[in-house]
């Protein structure tokens, strides 16, 4: 697929349809992949990569890219198209300035899960018929492919591209995913157990801001946590701010706008399952106000900027809750 993508990108650059290409390039290690902008055929040949580790959602970068002159070619996986659409809806991306090529999605791999098997000194990873052949400086090792899949891919919600100008490969369907399983499990715990779970998780936060910086819904010109005028600005980890304010406010800010792309948990260096907070909001919205998938379209009203006269009262939290 990588070859097909490079070929198509070169064509579009050559005939002037686009001025830049946004994709991924390899870093220091084979699994260390980062989003990148390419402007020439040479750069594409040299650096462009699309493999089992290109999990990063590039749609957020289009906010900045479309503010520049010229048109951008973006390769979007199905999950990325939702984020893209949501940003178009919020007028953050100029749709006219982007040529979207839909590409097949994951499952993508999680290097941490490979490392967790005690495999170190990794040079490269190949998928041979759903068995991973891992080249290391100590020789080749193997493990089953599905044991190394990213958490966000394991609970994939959709293989469908909600927006594209052309496709490379096949379009898929919206999947019947099990993504709310963990939320439900937590809901069925006692308040003390939930509190302990979250205190345990959130107290690990080092406020690196990776979750915020990667989030395609967090594209504010000036984040409230950086803005002294907001009254809740806070840049360094301080006492219980992360547990009590930062992650709750961040989740609330993206409630109804989060497409559940799962990037927050993917990039968290402390492995905090941040996506559960977002999924809790998504699940509540689906249950209380009707099924809603952010980014599925660019016209519907977001649940928090909409209402029904017979919406439930907040007391429903008492009524349906456990304990």
């Amino acid at each position: 697929m990588q070859e097909a993508m490079i070929k198509r990108a070169k064509e579009l650059l050559a005939d002037g349809s686009v001025d830049r290409v946004i994709g991924w390039k390899r870093g220091e290690f084979a699994y260390d992949i980062t989003p990148a902008v390419f402007t020439s055929a040479e750069e594409l040949d040299r650096d462009f990569v699309c493999d089992d580790f290109t999990a990063a959602n590039v749609s957020k970068y289009l906010v900045k890219e479309t503010q520049k002159e010229g048109k951008v070619l973006a390769f979007l996986k199905p999950c990325d198209t939702y984020s893209f659409n949501q940003l178009v809806k919020e007028h953050r991306i100029d749709r006219e300035k982007v040529y979207v090529i839909g590409i097949e999605g994951g499952p993508k791999l999680d290097i941490e899960k490979i490392r967790a098997k005690g495999i170190t000194g990794i040079l490269g990873v190949r998928n041979e018929d759903y068995t991973l052949k891992i080249e290391t400086i100590y020789g080749t090792q193997t493990m089953p492919f599905y044991e190394a899949v990213l958490g966000k891919c394991a609970s994939c919600k959709s293989k469908k591209h909600v927006v594209f100008d052309e496709l490379i490969g096949e379009d898929g369907d919206v999947l019947d995913s099990n993504r709310f399983e963990m939320v439900e499990k937590l809901e069925n715990m006692t308040a003390q157990e939930r509190f302990d779970f979250w205190r345990d998780q959130l107290s690990k936060c080092i406020r690196c801001n990776a979750c915020r910086n990667v989030c395609p819904a967090c594209t504010c010109e000036n984040c409230v946590f950086d803005n002294p005028k907001s009254g809740i600005d806070n840049k360094a980890p301080a006492d219980s701010f992360e547990e009590n304010m930062f992650h709750i406010i961040r989740a609330f800010h993206v409630a109804g706008r989060c497409t559940d792309c799962g990037e927050c948990s993917r990039v968290c260096p402390q492995h905090i399952p941040l996506h559960l907070l977002n999924r809790k909001f998504i699940k509540d919205i689906n249950e209380l106000y009707g099924e809603y998938q952010a980014g599925a379209d660019t016209t519907s009203r977001a649940p928090l900027t909409d209402y029904n006269k017979d919406d439930c009262e907040p007391s429903i939290v008492h009524e349906r809750g456990v304990e």
């Binding site: 919020e90 007028h91 953050r92 594209t219 504010c220 010109e221 009203r301 977001a302 900027t305 909409d306």
Partner: peptide
Amino acid sequence: SDELMCNGCSSCEKVCPYGAITY
């Protein structure tokens, strides 16, 4: 609205009962 901070996302426009917000 503080223009330097505004994202132009249209969230405010959707909840305004008077149509007081334009872009």
